[in-house]
Amino acid sequence: MPYAQDGSITWESVVARYNADLANNLGNLVSRTVSMAKKYFDGKIPVPDAETELDRDLKSSFASAVDGVYDNMLTYHVADALECVFTALRRANKYIDETTPWTLAKGGDDEHKRLGTVIYNLLEAIRISAVLLVPFIPASAEAILDAIGTDVRDYDSIERFGALAVGGEVKEVPPLFARIDEKAFLDGIAKEKEEAEKAAKAAEKAAEKHEGVAQISIDDFMGVELRTAQVTACEPVKRAKKLLCLQLDLGYEKRQVVSGIAKWYKPEDLVGRKVVVVANLAPATLCGVESRGMILASGEDEVRVVFLADDTPLGERVR
């Protein structure tokens, strides 16, 4: 993110940055170099021989990187500091292409000495990069230093190029920064987003069901006469699969009520139980049977009658 400005981050930019800088630049450099050290020098850090113009150019890139990180970090230009390191790493990758180690490996003594110089320089470049990267990716930086077989990791040691000790042992490099397949990664995120949206919609639906009814006054409520009653008899209503006909005893009177609960209750479930009845509902006829009231029940898919304690007195007002 550039200093003193707002940055913009998209998934694409994160993946691109990751692939370019970490996977291609750094990860690639480390794995190529370690594998060459193993292949050509049996995993031991080789002795550097005579320095060429190309080597000086590489070294100067790293000296710039060290200075650049120092100056930028002291003034809190963190992104610029990181960029200094990646610039030097790009230079190092280019150095491999320029020196063609695989060709040197096929040559004689002189070429082999040259190869030693090249591999040494690459390992030292990696070492310096790792030390510079410690503040940014501490765990990975330490892993890189472990892999190239060095204990020399303090800040002083990058003051000049060449503090890496000869003869150290290069180790197997764990896959540090595998390339991210951009499409797979972005697809994964799209999927996650989809699932999150689905969950949110489901939650919304559940909330909708609880939408309330308009508020009423206490007077409105008292206009409904709810009474306690006992079911003294109950039988199914002929030709009505959903209906049960109940005989209710309210103490001061008896009455008949029809209830659409046959799907969930058998007559024997109800007889003797105490229920709440809406006593002042206008009488109605359901399937030819008179109903003078309604008993209370909850639920839609699973209906449950509101039952009162067995010792509830009859005919009392429920408020």
């Binding site: 994160v14 963190v78 990181l82 765990a139 990975s140 540090l176 920064f177 595998a178 994964g188």
Partner: peptide, 25 residues
């Protein structure tokens, strides 16, 4: 959340999660 998704999506071990996130800056 996005941050965590970025890290979690990089299935290459814990230190690398941190490396990605930190390096991606």
């Amino acid at each position: 959340e996005i941050l965590r998704a970025v890290r979690d999506a990089v299935r290459t071990g814990r230190q690398h999660h941190v490396g990605v996130r930190r390096g991606a800056l």
